[in-house]
Design a protein around this nucleic acid. Sequence first.
DNA 1: CCCGTAATAT
DNA 2: AATATTACGG
Length: 517
Amino acid sequence: MDQQTEKDDHSKVVKSESKDKEVFPDGMRVLAVDDNIVCLRMLQAVLEHCRYKVKAVTDGATALKLLREDKNNFDIVITDVHMPDMDGFRLLEIVSLEMDIPVIMMSANDDKNMVMKGIKHGARDYLVKPIRKEEIQNIWQHVLRQKLFKPNGSTVKKEITDQNSNCTTKRQRGQSKERESTLNNDSGEDISAHKKPRVVWKPELHKKFIDAVHEIGIDKAVPKKILEYINEPGVSRENIASHLQKFRNAMKKNSARASQQSSNNVDSNGTSGHPSNTTITYPKRITQTDGFDVENIKNLGSIQHGRVVQNFSFFGIPATNQKPFSLQSLNQQCSSLQHYTQVPEIMDQVQQRKHIPGLGDFSSNPLRIDTLHHQTDFNELKYQSFPSRTTMLDDYMDISSHIPYYNASSELSSGINFTLNGSGTTSYPNNICFGGSRTSCTMPTVASTGLSEIVQHDSTSGPVQNFIPGHIQSSNLEHFMQSDNMTSINHVLEHLETESSIIDDEDLRAVVTQFQH
DNA sequence: CCCGTAATAT
DNA sequence: AATATTACGG
């Protein structure tokens, strides 16, 4: 099994001229691909710690571009499986078709089928996150093996040590060629064209969709018309139908929830008519196990999602129309916070309709009553009060997959609220806030990183920017919650970049402690 | 045909 | 998880 690797840690990592030297291909070039920036940085840190030369990119397309630029640029690719646009399998497929570079897959998911699929498709290895140093240390073997067995004339004679020789042949690519559907005869540049790309509803595209719906009218917006309106090559009527279906489902869910809760609290403070008059009803305590103390939630200012959401302009929709985005359950608990939003014309349209596809008979929807009830004028603009989860058209879609850190949105289903516009802090009337003086809360472990995150909001200094990645157990939680100097994720990441020896929880904790002094 | 919907597949 | 596809009634 393993040998000496265990004790090299501590601070003098670089110093130790280890016997690794002979086996360790210093400077082996690794292309690391992961859409999750935290994962990517962690991986990069580990790789660099192991003295690989790393290029880190966040999506498959960029990776491919780099690889195609010069096929000799990299010795090995290590890619996440779950990524938007082009997932790891696709990347693997293309790479193994076009070039002789070994690919290693990684994923938070250890599902056997996934692993099998990866291996069957020619992945040299399949690592389950969180990635450990020991696993990374050994990836050079794949490169070596690749080189030794390359059909190239120079069959290096080095004998491979042993034990792993039993590894049965997942051999090279190219020749063997499993029955791919499309046989490409072209001179092989665009071999990757054989599967129609699936539509990705990026914010820009989704905005077009929303615009189309607005323009056409919500009750007349059918796939065909929307298609004509947005006129995008590569988007079919079926694509739109599918998206529309999802859109309507989200809409239905939201309005159901909104009406359900609005019946509880809207009228309890009915005098609302102006944002500054808003009466706040504090939510009840949540008895969840995620460590969130909802009693501490107050209306003290806006909360932003650290550096992640900063400057993140969603849909290009003006700030006045933006709505707080929530990752669910907590929001339901907080939803008695009232807020105001400018009424878009579409709402008027909606109110005149008797029937809305997907929503049913609108006249029986309590939502309508609420919204009418609280209509008001403010600064020459028409405003309307909504219970906080009342939906606007732009608010219907779950956009969690478009937020960089939160692709694994399901793991965050009890997360916090934050606004999606990066510009302001307190200028929007509809923010859900956290306060008390300083309040911390945990978010559930993110499976893809194996890390938990802690958020602290300093109510006196603007947006929240303090995210600490690190696997902090509940036993340590108190300690972190009490500390006044929460380290921002930026600091930690910087540190990760410079001190590549930081590779596990313990190290992370050490860093955090250090920053606290 | 096209639409809406639910179920199922990828 | 996000899209695609299919099946079916209207």
